[in-house]
């Protein structure tokens, strides 16, 4: 078996618990991400999702374990791994355009000023920002527009891996929907490998090729890898018509609601844990049609 593009092996993170002992957030977590794949990680607060994200970004060091990308171990932050932070992290003293050109310049230091500006404008246009808006400061933009800038900044740099840390967490539901669509549109054109954290199950199903489910901490681990068997291109209204949608959704709700708790706290006695692959596909299953109404009744 060949190694995946991104492989996370035996990742363990412990913190001192303040009473002389240690607190293990997650232990021996391991998973892989293929090139061009959109992988979403779902789990409750405190299971260490953000820590995993920071380790992938190179902003934090794990207690033990390695992250390998393209065969090389990740150490420290790099332009090959772009990050979109939940709080946008735009530089407030720069205009929207400058926030993007600043990043493009860092990525392509040999480019002329005109090349950098054109490139930045192109990506801002892709997220629907053009005209006077791009000369405004981030403080003069709405939350949704700021996150668009942040997404444009990340995509403009063509990172090998794009990390999205709850990018829509601070946005209202309507704005979130629009930007999700835009994200899908840009992503569709680039073959970008994406790793994203979210709390939102519907968002995860809409965007992901695969969803990694984490158990609760302490001793959290990546328990399952759920394939999203809904064909692309997807739309928010289109996917709910698909027979697999509710089956997958119910599986996720059930996992987060009960099983993440039941599986929590189990120590792995050092064995490298790989997530169990789950594939739910009702389109090839004749009985699916009868089950569908029953599944629809389940709400979370």
């Amino acid at each position: 078996m060949t190694k995946p593009f991104l492989s996370v092996e035996n990742l363990t993170q412990t913190y001192p618990d303040g009473q002389g002992g240690t607190l293990t957030v997650f232990e021996n977590a391991g998973f892989g991400v293929e090139k061009g794949e959109f992988v979403v990680i779902l789990g409750h607060s405190g299971c260490g999702k953000s820590t995993i994200m920071n380790i992938l970004a190179g902003l934090a060091e794990p207690t033990s374990g390695v992250v390998k990308m393209d065969g090389y171990a990740v150490s420290g932050p790099s332009l090959d791994r772009g990050v979109v932070f939940q709080n946008y992290s735009l530089l407030p003293w720069l205009s929207t355009l400058k926030n993007v050109t600043f990043a493009v310049q860092a990525r392509f230091p040999d480019w002329t000023r005109a090349q950098v500006t054109d490139h930045a404008r192109k990506y801002l246009e892709m997220v629907g920002l053009s005209g006077d808006v791009i000369h405004r400061k981030p403080s003069q933009l709405s939350g949704g527009m700021r996150q668009r800038v942040s997404i444009a900044r990340a995509f403009a740099n063509h990172p090998k891996l794009l990390l999205l840390d709850e990018p829509f967490g601070a946005l209202d539901a309507l704005t979130r929907g629009t930007i999700q669509d835009e994200l899908l549109k840009i992503w569709g054109g680039t073959e970008q490998t994406v790793f994203m954290i979210t709390h939102d199950i519907d968002e995860a199903i809409l965007l992901a090729d695969r969803i990694l489910l984490m158990t609760n901490g302490p001793y959290a681990r990546v328990a399952e890898s759920v394939e999203i068997t809904i064909p692309r291109p997807r739309t928010r209204t289109g996917i709910i018509e698909h027979p697999n949608y509710y089956a997958i959704r119910n599986h996720l709700v059930q996992f987060l609601g009960t099983r993440s708790r039941e599986l929590a706290g189990r120590q792995t006695d050092g064995a490298p844990a790989t997530p169990e692959t789950v594939r739910i596909d009702k389109t090839t299953d004749a009985e699916a049609a009868d089950e569908a109404p029953v599944l629809r009744a389940v709400n979370h």
């Binding site: 190179g58 902003l59 709080n87 530089l91 003293w93 720069l94």
Partner: peptide, 27 residues
């Protein structure tokens, strides 16, 4: 720290981080 992280993920050297991120932020 977010702004420092932006500098780090864009591989800015110490001098460029000081002048393009920390100086305007602390100005």
């Amino acid at each position: 720290q977010d702004w420092v992280n932006v500098a780090r993920t864009h591989e800015l050297g110490p001098l460029r981080t000081a002048f393009t991120v920390i100086l305007p932020a602390a100005a």
